[in-house]
Structures are given as C-alpha cells and as structure tokens.
Amino acid sequence: MDSHLNIIAGFKNGKSYVKDLYVSLPFRCVSVGQRKNDGKLYQMIMSSSPGILDGDHYHLKVSLEKGASLQLQSQSYQRLFNMKDKAVQELDIVLEDETSFAYVPHPVVPHEDSNFKSEAKIHIGKNSQIIISEIITCGRKHYGEVFKLKRFQNLTEIYHENKLIVKDNILIQPDLIPINSIGNLEQHTHQGTFIFFSTKDDVKRDELIDNIVEYAERYQGEMEIGVSAMENNGFIIRSLGNGGEIMYNFFLHVQEVLWNLN
C-alpha cells in the first residue's frame, strides 16, 4: 500500500500551527500538548494498521516555515511484520530558517523474515536545529524471534546549504553480518541512535555532551551509552541495551533538554 503523510508547520503571531495537513490510510495526525503555552506545535502520528506490512511504501513529508517549531510523536512501538518481499519508508524534511524539529519515535520491532528500509533526507536552514532518533529491537524475544529479521536499514542524511553535513547508515542483516560479533551488538538486543544537529551559533555543544554523559551514568548496568561530537554544532548518541522502554525514556529526556534550548 502506498501511504502518504504531508504536514506543513506555519508560524504566525509568535505561534506555530498546522498550515496544511494531508494523510491517507492508515495514517492519522492529531494535536497533542494542548496545555503547553510555549507557542510550539505538537503532533502525534497515529495508524490504523497494526504495523508495516509486506509491500507497504510510506511517504512522509514534513515542512517547517520560517520561525516554526514542530515536535512529532509516535503512537506506539512500530511492528515490522513477516514479509516475502520488503517494505520501504521515505522521510523528507525541509526546515527553513529559524526552525526547530524533533522526532523521537517508539522502538521498532522487526518480526521474523521482515525486510525494511527507511531513508530520511533532511534539509536544514540557518539558525535552526533538528532532533531525530531511532531504536531497533531484536524482535519478539518472548516468541523466540531474536534477530530473525531478513534485513533492516535506516539511512539518514542531513544537508545544510546543499552540502551533506551528516550521513548515518544503520544496517542489520544477520545472515551477512554476525549480530553478536565484536564491534556489533555483541550480547545486547537493542540499539539506539540519537542525532542532534544545529546551525545556531550559540549552542554550547561540549557542555551539552558533558551533561548528557553525566546523566547517562545513572543507567550503568542497564545500557551502554556513547556520545560522538560532530565537527559542527551537533552530536550523535549511540546506545546498546536489553530493553526498549528504558532506552526510549532516556532519549525522551535528552530530547526535552534540547527542545528547551530555543
């Protein structure tokens, strides 16, 4: 099924709002965070489908006009069902100047024989920032489906002034790359990636990283967490663990800290 979600966030009188929204089945997009008075826009992506099915092709487009701030939220864990062929997701994000966008979805659960590829292309303007993450689980562990997926790939590219600034490629293919090998997931069952990139001049990147590393110490024994600084104003968090909820809550905390910068 070809499915579409297009959302444009506008900015007027000091507040962000939904300027345009188009969805097709199985998507819905609803407002959340109505009690917040920060002038930012909060939307939740919902789906009437139990998960991503064989042959699905998701087209997601997000545009933020100058001054807008949009935080997207997910409804629940994203299941990737058994597939004979594959499923694809394309995410296109365009951030004009002085914008802020965040998307920290729930973990992905790949079922046995699932084959999924996600591509995200992000164009960011001046004095703007983006927060985007992903958590991939081993599958339905209690059903004995520990990394029995065929293939999972998530490719993320961030461009600024038509120049590629960030490229991140996650590939899990157990029959090609031993998942438990050294330098891979080893004995862990969950992997998380959190990307923060800003084109603002006043971002105290090193101070933010120090605070995140200090906060992460409380998860010793539950997760392995590392932070890599980018050449520019940004960083990537990698996490390994054995549970999706604790990793997801950690990412939500980091998102909240970064979201309140502007």
Rank of each mutant, 00 (worst) to 15 (best):
N233Y: 10
H4C: 12
F194M: 00
I124F: 01
Y77F: 10
Q191P: 06
D206G: 07
K61Y: 12
I237F: 06
H111Q: 09
K148Q: 14
S198N: 08
L95T: 00
S133E: 04
R140P: 02
S74G: 15
G51Y: 05
I132L: 13
M46T: 05
V32D: 05
F197E: 03
S198I: 03
G183A: 05
P105C: 00
M247R: 02
N260G: 02
S47C: 04
E256Y: 08
V18N: 08
V213I: 10
M1I: 03
V18R: 09
E90R: 15
L261G: 02
I122K: 07
F196L: 00
G192F: 03
L149V: 04
R218G: 14
Y22T: 05
R28H: 11
K40H: 10
L91M: 13
I8G: 06
K84A: 11
N262G: 10
L41V: 04
F194V: 00
E161V: 03
L91Q: 15
Y17V: 00
N242Y: 12
S31H: 15
L70F: 03
N127V: 00
G10C: 05
V213K: 15
L60S: 03
D92C: 03
M247L: 04
L41I: 07
C29R: 11
I124W: 05
S49C: 01
R28V: 01
G39P: 13
Q78R: 11
F194W: 06
G39D: 03
G226R: 12
I236Y: 09
G139S: 02
D54M: 02
N115I: 08
